[in-house]
């Protein structure tokens, strides 16, 4: 199967979180989200509570997927950047590597030029960490030597409990 699980460890997660936190500050953004192309949130910084992050992640991924589809349709590989301008808030969406999406929400306290500049720098750093994660996953799947999974002993009772019976 072509499926490679995305497994994120504490150290990597901390690094990602740091980069996004810095980006939020440097770009004077309201919120910054890092989401996965499949619609799952990876990390967030800024005024996170002001937004329904789960819906944002899913809709962003849907948006990027649809835009990818459009790109292919006209013979482009991808559009690496999406920008939505609102009355107060703006949405800057960019692709990081193969599976990441960076979402920056900003208002008049910042500018598109500044956001662009800071995103570029942060993207490079994020990319490096994604590469590390990917390489490790690849190595583990090649050698078949995976770390001890905590899910090796899931029972039917565990699953029943998830459903509250």
């Amino acid at each position: 199967m072509a499926k490679l699980d995305l497994i994120m460890f504490e150290e990597e997660y901390k690094l990602l979180q740091e980069i996004i936190g810095r980006l939020a500050k440097d770009a004077s953004a309201k919120v910054v989200f890092l989401v996965d192309k499949n619609g799952q949130q990876i990390a967030a910084a800024g005024d996170v509570k002001s937004i329904d992050a789960t819906s944002l992640a899913s809709l962003t991924a849907g948006n990027v997927a649809a835009t990818d589809g459009l790109a292919k349709l006209i013979g482009e590989k991808e559009f690496s950047l999406l920008f939505h301008e609102g009355e107060k808030d703006n949405l800057h969406i960019s692709i990081v590597g193969k599976r990441g999406i960076l979402v920056v929400i900003f208002d008049q306290n910042s500018s598109l030029a500044l956001v662009r500049l800071r995103v570029k720098k942060a993207s490079k750093e994020l990319q490096e960490i994604f590469d590390q994660v990917e390489q490790r996953a690849q190595k583990e799947s090649d050698t078949g030597s995976r770390f001890e999974s905590p899910f090796s002993e899931i029972t039917d009772e565990d699953i029943d409990r998830l459903f509250g019976d």
């Binding site: 329904d52 819906s55 809709l59 849907g62 899910f151 899931i154 998830l162």
Partner: peptide, 28 residues
């Protein structure tokens, strides 16, 4: 979480419906 439905005027699904659900814990 919130149920997100991207539907047409006549309630036909246009792109997707999405519902996040927290199920509890397994092995911590």
């Amino acid at each position: 979480g919130k149920l997100v439905s991207l539907a047409t005027e006549t309630d036909r699904t246009l792109f997707f419906d999405f519902l996040p659900l927290d199920m509890g814990t397994v092995k911590g």
